[in-house]
Design a protein around this nucleic acid. Structure first.
Lengths: 154, 154
DNA sequence: AGTGAAAAAGGTTCCGA
DNA sequence: TCGGAACCTTTTTCACT
């Protein structure tokens, strides 16, 4: 479970931008031949540095024109309530992220929907009917100036 | 700019999970031979449905143990101030996302840092010294229950 | 850990349906 | 638009440094 050397970091930086790059090209870019590059890549995957690879879609292009962040405060923090609330959220495809946070609310969720109608339907029909919710506060995304999946690597 | 048929959608769904899948395997999974599958994939890329491919790293594993969301309210909405503020944020690697939002604040940003020290340094040394900022409100992420890059595809 | 060559697997192009 | 064959590239394996 050794450390990452500068070549590993270089590889990770490149792979965060070009997830489908051929290992031969990756090898060129980090100054290695194909064999050790493939070995390192496998190690980075096996040791859990790389979780997986994803195609990044253009949300608007595929019919998801609206995004929102919703702060949620629970009224009841009983373990059972919290667990039920969480698993209900996690099951939904349109809830793309769920964070437990500090501050004035308990959870921050990131929702994607086709349009305002779909979003308000989610909020009123689904979210507000979940047990244990005290209040919610929605922030609709007007524009996405940046949305990296990339983790900063010093 | 034609529509996406059910095979295209299937391909996109698979690619959101397995961004590095071989096109022959993708072809098998959608019931096509390699040639038309590769052609469709190229079209999805060229027409902007697929923005790119990314390796997804484990943040903790690569030294980014702390995430936070920060709501930012500007005091001065002059175009120049807003533009300067935005470009300063966009330049920073540790600011992984920037959204302009509705509601009580103007921007929501997603920050990744090694630890609390690094985060508080960012807030006090960088963020609060930016011109035009009226106030900020940080929510530190206690746990990530879900963080999909995937866009929901009906 | 890295290299280079050979075998296997995957990707691309062209043509016919 | 699809499928198949030929051709080319990439990946993997292996012997060696």
């Amino acid at each position: 479970m050794s450390e990452l050397d500068s070549i590993d970091l270089k590889m990770l930086r490149i792979l965060q931008r070009e997830g489908r790059i051929a290992t031969t090209d990756l090898a060129d870019q980090v100054g290695l031949s194909a064999t050790p590059c493939a070995r390192r890549l496998k190690r980075l995957e096996d040791d859990g540095y790389i979780r997986g690879y994803r195609a990044v879609l253009d949300p608007k292009r595929v019919g998801c024109g609206l995004q929102a962040f919703i702060n949620i405060r629970l009224g009841d923090h009983a373990e059972k309530t919290v667990a039920a609330f969480q698993s209900a959220l996690l099951r939904r495809q349109d809830v793309v992220a769920v964070y437990a946070i500090t501050g004035s609310s308990d959870f921050l969720i990131h929702v994607m929907a086709a349009d305002l109608d779909a979003l308000s339907e989610f909020t009123t029909r689904t979210l507000l009917r979940m047990p244990g919710i005290r209040d919610t506060q929605s922030s609709i995304v007007l524009s996405v100036l940046k949305a990296e999946t990339a983790v900063p690597l010093a």
